[in-house]
Amino acid sequence: MRLVLMLLALVALAGLALAAGRSWLGPVEVMQALFSGPEGVGRMLWSLRLPRLITGLVAGMCLGAAGLVFQTLLRNPLASPDVIGLTQCAAFGAVAALMAGLPPMAGAWVGAVSAIILLGWLAAHPREGLAPRAVVLQGLGLALLAGAGTEALILRAGDGNASMAMAWLTGTLNGAGWPEVGHALWLVPLLAPLFTARRILDRLELGDDLARSLGLRVGVLRAALGLLAALIAAGAVSLCGPLGFVALAAGPVSRWLARGRPDPFLAALVGAGFVTLADVLARGLAPAALLPTGLYTALIGAPILLVVLRRQMSDKSS
């Protein structure tokens, strides 16, 4: 039921995203433009708004699902990829690749995978296996380090590439066209397996020993889920920059919708809705300014996160 409502809300938001912009379209005009194809009346919609919408949806799904997966694996509602440094390492890799003339998604992947290998190695406890709290704390440090590295790269690069990299670092869907949609589709086969991981995440929440005695290969599953989540989060970063708060807020919001249970599909829908809403606001409120979408995800995401976390805290203490 909540899933159906969430899907309906997402469809409504998508419609709004196609209608919003410098020139607003009515519902009939949107339908006409959609069905007329890329030629004629639908040209603006097909060449600008549709690819932008699809890129935002995929990026939002990736960030939302990755956020929930990391928060569940590390048993910490704050341990999303943007807090434990994956997003920052992916951004560093993407900027480095961009400046070297290589595909940014490859750079982002290298950055994020190096980050999880490094974190896994740093946080490995000889007696107890992986220590989730250590991952979160060391990830905070890694995030600062990678952020500084990215700034250094941009400063060194001089004017030409730097302004482009700077705009992208706030997180923006400006400039998302059909080539970006092509890149985004690469992420779908990595995203889909996570949607089947609900039962596994549910068991991992009970603690490592109990999950293992229930027959789960905890080490293998955690590594596989962590790798997939890192790849999709990094992929989303390479598409539209590190959109703030999407990964962090989608997890708690989706849990609230799913009565406390981790559901990566629901988290993906929440993330997609979140990015789409932010982009509608970015284009609808100040169409001339074209402020980066990342500004609005932070503006909406931070309060939502505060409300949901406050709710969870008060639930626990009552």
């Binding site: 048993r75 603690g207 490592d208 406390g260 969870q312």
Partner: peptide, 8 residues
């Protein structure tokens, strides 16, 4: 070490 997730 088992943990009961909140709300379960």
């Amino acid at each position: 070490s088992a943990i009961a997730p909140p709300g379960l």
